[in-house]
């Protein structure tokens, strides 16, 4: 018992630390894309203390609650938003045996918990009593319902190939060949997974719920100080979680020569994170109706067809023989 609590505590802190530094990675990466330098002043070399400085700044900022906000809902929302993002790490195996709980329904747990995020998001949008926030929450529900489905369908393709819902088994099934390298099916599924990932993370081009040029900052427009920091943390944690999932499902998790398993795993997760970031900083946002259209008319049928094709292939003896 004590050991489990300690392990959870360590994991939580490691994840939060990694996520804090992901913001730094993203800022530097975006800066390179835009021919800028990015954070540079706080900490030598290359402003490496910037995330810490940001966190301290947000901690000591005044916490403002709008006069007409629904206070309990408003105050609870950031926590409800953050919780599922942290919970998903419970089931992620960072290396063989290095993980909290390698559930035999790991992926199911992941998908179920990560979609709980919407509750916190909607609470924030509703509780703020702000029209922009409300509109954003409305969009969020639309979008997450639409993209959760193709996201789950694409996540099922590796499950079919490996013949297991357990994340560590899925990784072991990729011992010979990573799923992304499977002919045609692997690549298409990976692309669909990235698209669904971007949408479920609400990033450009699917960031209609933040949409600062229309809705100012969307559901978090009224949040300040530490509550804002929690929301930000939740978003990046979720993003990191989904990147980890991508690494497990398609890129062979901890498998790789030379480096220790956890290092390979983090590198692969970072790769997916940077892929998403690359898309983010080179696309413009698309409209809410176009996003829904893309999901229901293109992505969902395409992933369903892909899933069926994978099923046939596995039935005919392809895939991993367990």
């Amino acid at each position: 018992m004590m050991r489990d609590v300690l392990a959870a505590f360590v994991l939580l802190n490691v994840v939060v630390l990694i996520v804090t530094y992901l913001t730094y990675v993203e800022r530097k990466f975006a800066a390179r894309m835009q021919s800028r330098i990015g954070p540079y002043r706080v900490g030598r070399p290359h402003g490496w203390l910037q995330p810490i400085a940001d966190a301290i700044k947000l901690l000591i900022k005044e916490d403002i609650v709008p006069a007409l906000a629904d206070r309990p809902v408003y105050n609870l929302a950031p926590i409800v938003f953050l919780l599922p993002s942290l919970l998903i790490f419970a089931t992620i195996p960072f290396a063989p045996g290095l993980g909290l709980a390698d559930l035999n329904i790991g992926i199911l747990f992941f998908l179920a918990v990560s979609s709980l995020e919407i509750v916190g998001l909607f609470m924030g949008g509703w509780g703020s009593n702000n029209k922009y926030a409300l509109l954003s929450a409305m969009r969020a529900v639309n979008q997450i319902i639409s993209y959760e489905v193709p996201f789950v369908v694409t996540a099922l393709i590796p499950v079919l190939l490996a013949g297991s819902l357990k994340l560590s088994t899925i990784v072991q099934a990729q011992e010979g060949l990573w799923f992304v390298a499977y002919p045609v099916i692997g690549q298409l599924a990976f692309v669909a997974f990235i698209v669904a990932t971007i949408a479920s993370e609400n990033r450009v081009p699917f960031d209609i719920l933040e949409a600062e040029s229309e809705l100012v900052a969307g559901f978090r427009v009224e949040y300040s100080g530490m509550k804002f920091a929690l929301i930000q943390l939740a978003e990046y944690t979720h993003m990191f979680g989904v990147s980890c999932l991508g690494a497990l499902l398609f890129l062979g998790g901890w498998l790789g020569p030379g480096l220790p398993g956890w290092a390979w795993f983090l590198l692969k997760a970072l790769f997916i994170f940077l892929l998403v970031t690359w898309v983010r900083w080179s696309f413009v946002r698309i409209r809410v109706d176009q996003i829904l259209g893309l999901s229901w008319k293109v992505l969902l049928p395409a992933t369903l067809v892909l899933l069926m094709a994978t099923g046939f292939w596995v039935a005919l003896g392809g895939g991993h023989v367990a």
Partner: peptide, 12 residues
């Protein structure tokens, strides 16, 4: 910026 937002390709 209007189309893509300050936190996306628009800013680029």
């Amino acid at each position: 910026l209007d189309l893509g937002g300050a936190l996306g390709g628009g800013a680029t």
